[in-house]
């Protein structure tokens, strides 16, 4: 098993690809792999890129990768596309735009589908980023289509979050609704050669200023009460210390791409100098541990439910009014609680 890790660490592309597959498939033994990788991580700069479909994410990512390569840096890209909720199948099309890095193996591009899993995507993404990091990539870019929770998910794995906004993407309210203002460290108005670009920049700037002012930002303590883990996301302190940049680009013609990279670099420097990076990574690891614990406990108890005669049997009892869901849950979790109590008292 660790042969694979040795190969990955020595720079074998195939091994890296295979490790990511195992992570994605959650193959038996993938946890050991990720555990072994962990100590080799922490060197890559992780950049999350999100934006609405058609805003030009893939094209921009392609140019960014090429520009990083010109600067002598190696790049890993993870592009996430949705999968069909019906068949689980997916067409992953982000690779089509990767025309600037033909035959350049030092740009490792990997398509992933959002295999319809409950929160599993963020775990798989985090682990895949670790693999790229351990492999020695200087920059890791995660590209994902922007739709609500997914964006929050990439915040958790990326050091810097870049949001693409196409010109004329609706009025102020649209932007508020999408909830993108809170998560972006750098905003890119792509396709800046189209009409309405400067207006979009203007609107963005105004909206971001609201966020800094007296009106409470929705990313703070109160607005995000529905998500138990959001307290740690550091959105608030980021809004105080870092003023998000707005950059205009025409990715297709390679215009403004260098500015984007400079802006990302500035944010990286800010993270280092303000101590934010350390704080961020602590928050992230805490979140990762929480997620894993939740998933593991869930798995353990799901197996137990099956062992006890399956979910249907419980449902039958509840329907027949012989018991109720709370009691069922108490019965199932009770032994676990007892175990924990016993251990604590020792």
């Amino acid at each position: 098993m660790s042969d694979l890790i040795d190969e990955l660490l020595s720079g074998k592309h195939r091994a890296l690809a295979r490790v990511i597959t195992k992570i994605e498939d959650r193959r038996a033994g993938y946890r050991d792999l990720v555990s072994q990788i962990h100590q080799h991580t922490g060197n890559a700069d992780v950049i999350g890129v999100t934006g609405s479909p058609g805003s030009g994410k893939s094209t921009l990512v392609d140019k960014m990768a090429a520009t990083y390569r010109d600067r002598g840096l190696t790049v890993g890209v993870i592009a996430i596309d949705p999968s069909s909720p019906f068949t689980g199948g997916a067409v992953l099309g982000d690779r089509i735009r990767m025309g600037s890095n033909i035959g350049d193996m030092d740009v490792f591009f990997r398509s992933m589908s959002a295999r319809g899993s409950l929160g599993g995507l963020s775990t798989a993404t985090t682990d895949a980023v670790k693999a790229l990091d351990a492999f020695g990539k200087d920059k890791v870019i995660i590209e994902t289509v922007g739709a609500g929770q997914n964006e929050i998910d990439i915040v958790k794995t990326a050091d810097t979050v870049m949001v693409l906004v196409p010109p004329g993407s609706g009025d102020d309210v649209q932007m508020l609704k999408a909830g993108i203002l809170e998560i972006g460290d750098v905003f890119v108005v792509n396709k800046a050669d189209l009409d309405g670009s400067s207006r979009t920049v203007q609107e963005l700037r105004e909206m971001l200023q609201y966020g800094d002012g007296d009106i409470p930002s929705t990313g703070g303590h109160h607005g995000a009460g529905s998500m138990d883990e959001t307290e740690g996301l550091q959105l608030e302190s980021e809004a105080e210390g870092w003023d998000p940049d707005i950059v205009e680009t025409v990715a297709k013609r390679d215009e403004g791409v260098a500015d984007v990279l400079d802006s990302l670099e500035e944010h990286a420097t800010y993270l280092d100098e303000s101590g934010e990076r350390e704080q961020q990574s602590r928050t992230r690891y805490a979140e990762e541990i929480r997620t894993l614990v939740r998933e593991d406990v869930n798995e353990l108890l799901t197996a137990e439910i099956n062992n006890q005669g399956g979910m249907e049997a419980y449902v039958d009892d509840v329907v027949a009014r012989e018991t109720d869901p709370y009691t069922v849950s108490d019965d199932l979790v009770g032994p676990l609680a007892d175990c924990v109590r016993e251990r604590r008292e020792k």
Binding site: G88, G89, L92
Partner: peptide, 14 residues
Amino acid sequence: RALRDAGFEVIYSG
């Protein structure tokens, strides 16, 4: 498309 509908993940090269 047929492969996608069969439940596979398809990467198209362009």
